[in-house]
Design a protein around this nucleic acid. Structure first.
Lengths: 295, 295
DNA sequence: GTCAACCCATATATTTTCGGTATGCCAATG
DNA sequence: CATTGGCATACCGAAAATATATGGGTTGAC
């Protein structure tokens, strides 16, 4: 059962004549006649009544015609759909994001995306620091908005911005009265530590910063998320050194201050599987850059 | 866009491997690999991710897969439907019938048909004497139940029974007191005449019968249908000589009596276009014969 | 680390199938 | 009776599909 034969069959049925159909198909009449007879042999029954004034569908032919047309349309549609997906005009884009970035980026990113790729189904999913790598690798998200970038040989990264570290403390803290806090003033104070994803759960993202300034902060607690860190800060357990955008999700009672003489920052990056040839990734990066630029 | 390629594509997508799919398709692996690449070239985008452990659909491939499967199923289904119609297992059978025969035949014929060809859509349509030939020729009915048979070179006929002529008269008629009516007693009485379809509208179906018995009946009225004839008989306009089965549709006040010494009858026949190769016609004739036999 | 196994891609030869040209057959028409 | 219109058949050349043989890359085992 060949699709070409079905196409020929439909053409002959519509033209009610082999000669006319051959003309429309830009081919000679005899080969078309042969193909029709082969189709009839394959079906095992005549599909046309041959009259002296042309061809006319038999009832068996009518039964075939409707389905053959549908099958043709589906095949064409399938090819077009595949092309559209490959061109990034349709398809699905699953966006993973870390929650710290949600308030800062998503409100600008989502409208931008809907405008840029209107035919695409968008999906958003929050990523935790511990699972983000796996979610990219198993393709359950197409791209991930991360801070910092994922470090993995199979995962490609595009840096789209950075966030300075700031000191987060209770409003009541004496340091809150300063416009910016000198690093030296942190010495000896308890730290709420977030692990750096590349250095294992017992690490902290700010170890290099503290070491460079020869500041020692005893670790009061280790937490997984920026929001947990802020909760503990509010509870008076210690101070936290967090990326600036965390302010947007900070509860009342917490203030952020810049660190004097410290320009360290965390990269904001788009991360995706190196072998994911989705054409949507390029567009996504552009949108994300725009969103970050207006932050 | 070739259906074979789509079939190969679906096989590879399901097997997630060219080698496995080739085995299932009973072919060698290299040509299948070539066909898949040709399909990808035709679409203009990769449909599979080639991994070291086999093949995996890309999103474009997924978009194609669903429609390709549907198209394949439709093509197969179309071929099967055409075969089923050609074999008389499905399809449509449009039955035309003349109204005189309705009461006598349809109640037995219809259940018989539904039992014999359960997959077939049945359609019933009343035929008038003046249009029945055209309705058969233009295929608006597949078969026609006629009395008498249609006489036309393009129309084939199967005689399935006959109906004796009887005299129809008002209950009040003096002839009604006889068990059967001698032909001679009709002489001079007014006749309600039905035209014989083969001899034009000015004819009568009973001309030969009357002539053979040297009976002359003045024609009081010419009508098109048996029912009109009976109405006029009831109104006292004259007598009618009608096929026996007309009794079944006769109104109160009309009686039928056999004609003594006259065995003339009208054939009941199934008529269809000579070139209509519908396999349902044979079955229909058998059913109609059964129905007539139990009349 | 080497070797074997697995899987897909490429190359070449053979076979199948398709499409074109020339021609025949049949029926309808004038 | 010849002509026209339409489909079928015959034959040939071209294109495409399939098979066999082979290469290259990666995985996993010893």
């Amino acid at each position: 059962m060949d699709l070409r034969r079905l196409r020929y069959f439909v053409a002959v049925a519509e033209a009610r004549s082999i000669g006319k159909a051959a003309e429309r198909l830009r081919m000679a009449q005899p080969p078309l006649s042969v193909q029709i007879r082969k189709l009839e042999a394959e079906i095992g029954a005549p599909l046309f009544r041959r009259g002296t004034r042309g061809m006319d569908l038999t009832e068996a032919g009518q039964a075939l015609l409707s389905r053959a047309s549908e099958a043709l349309a589906l095949a064409v549609d399938g090819a077009e759909a595949a092309r559209a997906v490959a061109a990034g005009k349709r398809g699905r884009l699953s966006v993973g994001y870390m929650f710290v970035l949600a308030n800062a980026i998503l409100p600008r990113l989502i409208p931008e995306l809907r405008r840029s790729v209107p035919g695409v189904d968008l999906e958003f999913a929050e990523l935790s620091a511990s699972t983000r790598e796996a979610r990219v690798l198993d393709r359950s998200v197409t791209v991930a908005l991360c801070m910092p970038a994922i470090n993995h040989p199979e995962i490609q990264v595009a840096r789209i911005g950075a966030q300075r570290f700031m000191l987060a403390m209770p409003t009541s803290s004496p340091l809150a009265r300063l416009g910016s806090v000198p690093m030296a003033r942190l010495h000896g104070r308890p730290l709420i530590a977030l692990p750096h994803p590349d250095h294992g759960p017992a690490s902290s993202a700010v170890v290099p910063l503290l070491r460079r300034h020869q500041v020692v902060m005893p670790i009061a607690s280790r937490v997984e998320t920026v929001h947990s860190a802020m909760s503990l800060v509010l509870a008076g357990e210690g101070l936290a050194i967090l990326p600036a955008c965390a302010q947007l999700g900070a509860p009342r009672g917490i203030v952020f201050r810049p660190l004097r003489d410290a320009t360290d920052s965390l990269d904001i990056a788009v991360c995706w599987r190196r072998d994911s040839q989705s054409p949507l990734i390029g567009t996504f990066i552009k949108c994300a850059e725009k969103a970050v630029a207006r932050m």
